[in-house]
């Protein structure tokens, strides 16, 4: 009797895991897609959407390589990670004409360097990564990345940094004025030294916590994405998103078609759905970044167009994409990164 119940339970579980008809498995960032939009897609297509979340591009890659490839249909990696994933053979390619709404992609994003001709991915949102400070605590007028890399007294020990190697290394390189993925040994040593010194003033590492630590007051400043900072401001934190003198990181997250997707057709339907301006605009309104789809602006809230987080101030440095480093440099980066935490 006991054995019978057990067997039934196991079979039921196995069946639940195997049922793949009419499903779509999305591997996504946290807090990045409004539930209403998911509901709308489900209502339009009858497809059941299952969402799992990750908190950094690197965590997404690690998970797929550790054996979850084949259980998701789509994921939403950032620009440089699209290139890495394509190189690792983790991405499937669209057939010619498979995406009905592909023409809606804005020209400037159609031939993105990380996916020329858009054969694996479509734009999701784009935005920037920089620094936000709590204006109740820091009243100075510095507009430099020194706010986190050489912080003023009142911010020391109260800084949160994204738990994302790519973004930290890129911003540190921008601050030092050295090229990303530099192979110059003196420059790499300087990078190491800068981060070692700076990290003594950091309180925590975390991407998913980046908004909450500002809202709850656990941190007084933090590396953060522009839309996430806008949400922190809306939730009552007196934070200002800084566009630094030295420059900042620009990124674009993209919906990619994963290799071995169990529901490839549904994935394509989902992408076509997101390529419709009124749909992707809902994401923009929710996450407060920008879409790369023609006509989406019509459906986005007007406040977004003028929000301080979405408009670099006069005199700010340039926004740059994160570059993919070669193996030798990446290994140096890995070493620097580990030493930060020891």
């Amino acid at each position: 009797m006991k054995r019978l119940t057990t067997t039934t339970a196991i079979l039921a579980l196995a069946a639940g895991a195997a049922a793949a008809e009419g499903e779509l498995r999305v591997y996504h960032w946290f807090e990045y897609m409004p539930q209403e939009l998911v509901d709308k897609f489900e209502a339009e297509t009858g497809i059941d959407v299952i969402i799992d979340t990750y908190d950094s591009n690197e965590a997404l890659l690690a998970s797929l390589k550790a054996g979850t490839l084949g259980s998701y249909d789509v994921a939403v990696p950032g620009d440089y990670m699209v290139a890495i994933m394509a190189g690792e053979g983790l991405l499937d390619t669209f057939e010619e004409g498979e995406l009905t709404n592909k023409a809606n992609i804005e020209d400037q994003w159609l031939n993105a360097p990380f996916d020329a001709g858009r054969v694996h991915s479509i734009p999701y949102q784009w935005g920037s990564t920089s620094v936000s400070v709590n204006r109740d605590i820091y009243t100075g007028d510095t507009n430099s990345l020194s706010l986190i890399f050489d912080p003023p007294e009142e911010l020391k020990g109260r800084i949160n940094v994204l738990d994302s190697q790519g973004e930290v290394m890129a911003l540190a390189s921008i601050y030092l004025g050295i090229p990303q993925c530099s192979q110059d040994r003196d420059q790499l040593r300087a990078l190491d030294e800068l981060l070692q010194t700076a990290s003594a003033h950091w309180a925590s590492f975390g991407s998913d916590i980046a908004k909450d630590v500002l809202v709850s007051g656990d941190a007084a400043a933090g590396m953060i994405y522009n839309g996430f900072s806008a949400k922190a401001r809306e939730e009552g934190a007196n934070v200002e998103y800084i566009y630094p003198d030295e420059g900042y990181v620009v990124w674009m997250d993209n919906v990619v078609l994963l290799e071995q997707a169990p529901n490839r057709e549904n994935a394509i339907r989902f992408m076509d759905f997101l390529l419709q301006p009124e749909n992707i605009a809902q994401v923009t309104n929710y996450a407060q970044y920008a879409a790369g789809i023609t006509g989406a602006a019509e459906f986005t809230e007007e406040a977004l167009a003028t929000s301080p987080e979405n408009n670099p101030r006069e005199g700010a440095g340039p926004g740059v994409f994160i570059e993919v480093c070669d193996q030798a440099t990446q290994e140096v980066y890995d070493q620097i990164w580990t030493r930060l935490r020891s």
Partner: peptide, 22 residues
């Protein structure tokens, strides 16, 4: 601890689920 200073558990986790991938 804010995931800032690692303990053994966090070091190991990072190798499989985080940035390091080693």
């Amino acid at each position: 601890g804010g995931a800032k200073t690692y303990m053994i558990g966090s070091l190991i986790e990072e190798q499989f689920k985080g940035n390091a991938g080693n």
